[in-house]
Design a protein around this nucleic acid. Structure first.
Length: 272
DNA sequence: CCACGATCCTGCTAGC
DNA sequence: TGCTAGCAGGATCGTG
């Protein structure tokens, strides 16, 4: 979205039909405050898309489970479940389409308010800052199970359910292991695995097993390359054991019970 | 500090 | 064919 949006001025905001989408503003405020603001940067932080405006104000958009952001020519008829259309000069629109209505749009009048918001709820970026030492530091002393810890955005930003499962499988770590129980070798493998699965997901332009599309409406390819997520009943790609689905912190979690033992087994086990 | 359940929503699909 | 239970890429809140 950077190329099409940077430098463009907002001319309007419409189709704001879902107040719960706006935790810190009203529809009327957005429609009144946004026109005239010029986009100077488009960034990602964790799972948030940030639109920064010339005066330091910003929008932060979270797609949650079902949201899609589509760049369309002006005048495109919004599809069902569209809850925000941002109009830009030059005949461009950004449509926020979200059937489940879990998505959120935050408005921040100043850069420092945005910074405080991000600081309060997001940990380090795995692709920028996650050395093995940093992950070891994040795990140290935590009695929490490792998967819920990885999914906690305040601990580490941007890792979701499927990437957590993929990384834990690659690293040969059971999702219910206590975070502090990981050996330094396991922590090292996990740090590398997290970076790998996120990098692959981006290279493949996302995981579209359901409705995800990018801003141009194109599906990603990553769903065809998942190693463990959603593969219950199928053979583990590494050892041939049957992949199972378990519940960890109420989230579906797919594991290979042989490559990812819960108890440190005396048998040699998998050397992923 | 941590686990768990409920909550916010709609759509899809597997199973009957 | 039609119904229903269960599940879904997320995150927050209250309770214990």
């Amino acid at each position: 979205m950077r190329q099409p949006l940077i430098g463009r001025r907002v001319t309007g905001a419409s189709h704001l039909d879902w107040p719960n989408m706006l935790p810190n503003a009203t529809s009327e405020e957005l429609a009144r405050l946004l026109p005239g603001r010029r986009v100077v940067d488009v960034q990602r932080r964790g799972k948030l898309l940030l639109l920064r405006f010339a005066d330091g104000s910003a929008l932060a958009l979270h797609r949650k489970m079902s949201g899609n952001l589509l760049l369309q020519p002006a005048g495109t008829l919004p599809r069902p479940h569209t809850h925000l259309v941002l109009h830009f000069e030059g005949g461009l629109e950004l449509h926020f389409v979200d059937p489940r209505k879990f998505g959120r749009v935050y408005f921040f009048p100043t850069a420092s308010e945005l910074a405080a918001f991000l600081e309060a709820r997001l940990g380090p970026e795995p692709l920028d800052d996650l050395t093995e030492e940093e992950l070891a530091r994040l795990l140290r002393g935590r009695q929490r199970r490792v998967k819920p810890l990885l999914l906690d955005q305040r601990v580490l930003a941007g890792v979701g359910n499927l990437y957590a499962d993929e990384a834990l499988w690659l690293a040969g770590v059971h999702p219910a292991r206590a975070a502090s129980s990981l050996s330094s070798a396991e922590a090292r493998r996990l740090a590398l695995a997290l970076r790998q699965v996120l990098r692959e997901g981006i290279e493949r332009r996302g995981t579209s097993f359901s409705s995800y599309v990018d801003a141009a409406g194109n599906r990603g390819d990553n769903q065809a390359h998942l190693r463990v997520y959603g593969r219950a009943g199928q053979a583990c790609l590494r050892c041939g054991a049957t992949i199972v689905r378990i519940l960890i912190a109420q989230r579906g979690s797919w594991i290979c019970p042989r490559c990812q033992p819960l108890e440190p087994s005396s048998a040699s086990g998998a050397r992923p």
